[in-house]
Amino acid sequence: MVVSTLESSHPLDKYLRTARLPHIWCPGCGLGIALGSIMRAIDKRIKEGTLKKENLVFVTGIGCSARTSFYVNFDAAHTLHGRAIAFATGAKLAKPELEVIVIGGDGDIAGIGGNHLLHAAKRNMDLIVLMITNFVYAMTGGQVAPTTPLGLYTTTTPHGNPEPPLNVVKVVSSLNANYVARASVTHPALVEQYVYKALGMRGFRFIEILSTCPEIFGRHIGMRDPFTLYSTLRSKVIVKQSPSIEESDLDWGKGFVIGEYLVRDNPGYLDRIGRGLK
């Protein structure tokens, strides 16, 4: 092996606030993989000329996933727990040429922020919402989350989680969203592909990204080693071309079906109120 010093920089550094790296996420946390894939989709759009960098806005709430807004070198907002979609809706309505992307964990987006998710999807609001599902409240130390598997030990369900998980893909699909997909950080090329596609659409676009949290969730299920958790999740992912909603349940036994559940081109909210896109 011929070793030399580093002469070039990471291809995504141009979109990152590199002064803030290394980021706060724990070793093996899937958030960085998700963020990298999202950045590559954005990079592709910018290079093609179908997206302007200065029009991108990242809006996040609170939680590990919400910290993505620390690191992106775009306009970014780190707002309140659960309220990122509401903030993003206001920004988009006020300035329709913005491309507003909300990133949050399942607790942020579908727990405390669940009502905003429902209504943004109902009005087919012109937003991209990326919900990163790690099955647990991680930043606060391992409490039960909307997507936590039934029966699992967490710090607030020490006798086992009595509630089955929330299938957010199914919920959002029942509303008026234009795009609903599920991806996994174990398949970063698909994350990139779905985000790239969403960036070219109008209306409400929702992508759930399954992720790994070895430090907290991994501890709960006995998989602290990052690659063990990563490869376990990967082994449970079933990629389908056009999956049906009926097979979308978050089921650690049967596996997780990922793919594009819903793709359509209905008028977005901005079209309906007479302030069409651009």
Binding site: S4, L6, C29, P226, F227, Y230
Partner: peptide, 27 residues
């Protein structure tokens, strides 16, 4: 640090690494 073959160069920004081992596992 970086290392090259005749075709590819693998670059590692060492101070960003957190030793998760995923790169080793997926290669």
């Amino acid at each position: 640090m970086s290392a090259s073959s005749t075709k590819f160069r693998v670059n590692i920004i060492t101070n960003r690494c957190k030793e998760c081992g995923i790169c080793i596992g997926v290669c």
